[in-house]
């Protein structure tokens, strides 16, 4: 259907256009052949990780890079790191200098939604073009094994009795863990400004404080606690997932009567000002990447849950999360 291209067209290229055409609406499918020669051929995809090398976003960016290149979806892919302030330094650069660039994507996630609000970023996620949600991690609440708190009801009862006395260890202020505690307080009718949340800088430091019974409870991704739970040093109170998860031996908060869902998701977005063709092209590239065996293997190796959601569905998910996070951050007193 797009046979007008030069001899240089590869098999991969053809396939990408087929998918693209199927994804696009019939209305502009006709013009695709023309636009295709300009935008669909991406010689090198630039992936921005708005974090320092080694962190979660950086690992995700590098995993995308290797899945894209080993599966031959793009010819080349390059990762750049722009660390700073929960990703908003990278976001600002991405939006300002990437405008209209159809060969640039950025990794981001739930943490960035919070960081934009707490750091009063002048640039927001409203400005980017959503591409797809890729991975998720289940958030878990744990207590030390010798704690009198046995389940979510006990924890809620203690929280209701005196929110000050329930100390929470977790990651940075306004981050995913803090948001979870705020949502929990709201869900059970405790004043969220009264929670005694103590941020720790590294996962290890928080975990040590929980193991040493310095705090009442701890919040983090399930993966950080898994080994300790299996060894019987920590008790899993619940995960904030919508339903039970196969590999986690424990209940959700929801089934214990706490109406709370929160997953720590990571996604990719594109710069503002893209044409429909450019957007569709990037969506199709990421779509193929997400379905590639290389990516599926990476997910398994890294212990990330597949949370693939693309295009408009992801766009509206992103909107909802922004509203919800803004609301909870305001109610825990981090933003006005």
């Amino acid at each position: 259907m797009v046979g007008t291209g030069g001899a240089a067209r590869t098999r991969i290229k053809r396939r990408s256009l087929v998918v693209l055409a199927a994804a696009a609406s019939m209305a502009f499918a006709g013009s695709l052949g023309l636009a295709g020669s300009a935008s669909a051929q991406i010689a090198e995809l630039k992936i921005m990780a708005p974090a320092a090398p080694g962190g979660g976003w950086d690992q995700t960016a590098r995993a995308i890079q290797s899945a894209l290149t080993t599966s031959g979806i793009v010819k080349g892919a390059q990762v750049t790191n722009v660390p700073g302030a929960g990703g908003i330094v990278g976001l600002a650069q991405f939006v300002n200098s990437g405008k209209g660039d159809g060969s640039l994507i950025m990794v981001n996630g739930l943490v960035m939604v919070g960081a934009i609000l707490t750091n009063k970023s002048p640039v927001t996620l409203e400005q980017v073009t959503p591409i797809a949600r890729l991975t998720a991690e289940n958030q878990a609440i744990v207590v030390p094994a010798n704690s009198p708190i046995k389940n979510a009801q006990d924890l809620v009862a203690a929280l209701k009795a005196d929110p000050a006395k329930v100390t929470w260890a977790g990651g940075s202020a306004g981050g995913t863990d803090h948001i979870l505690v705020g949502l929990l307080a709201k869900a059970v009718g405790v004043d969220p400004t009264k929670i005694n949340y103590i941020p720790f800088s590294g996962g290890g430091e928080a975990l040590a404080a929980i193991l040493g019974s310095k705090v009442t409870a701890g919040v983090s991704g399930y993966g950080e606690f898994e080994g300790q739970i299996k060894a019987g040093k920590l008790r899993l109170i619940g995960i904030a997932a919508p339903a039970r998860v196969a590999y986690i031996d424990g209940p959700t908060l929801k089934e214990q009567g706490v109406d709370l869902e929160l997953i720590n998701w990571r996604s990719v977005v594109a710069p503002p000002g893209l044409t429909k063709e450019q957007t569709a092209n990037l969506v199709s590239i990421i779509d193929k990447m997400a379905k590639s065996p290389a990516w599926q293997e990476t997910l398994k190796a890294k212990g990330w849950d597949d949370a693939y959601l693309s295009g408009d569905a992801f766009g509206s998910f992103l909107k909802n999360e922004q509203v919800r996070i803004a609301d909870v951050l305001k109610s825990i007193g981090l933003t006005q």
């Binding site: 996962g203 993966g223 898994e226």
Partner: peptide, 23 residues
Amino acid sequence: LPTSATAAMMLAGFQQYNLNPGP
């Protein structure tokens, strides 16, 4: 417990073999 940036990197090294250091 990865208690320093370095230890966190070691953890990443372990994870290459699908191993999560723990108790």
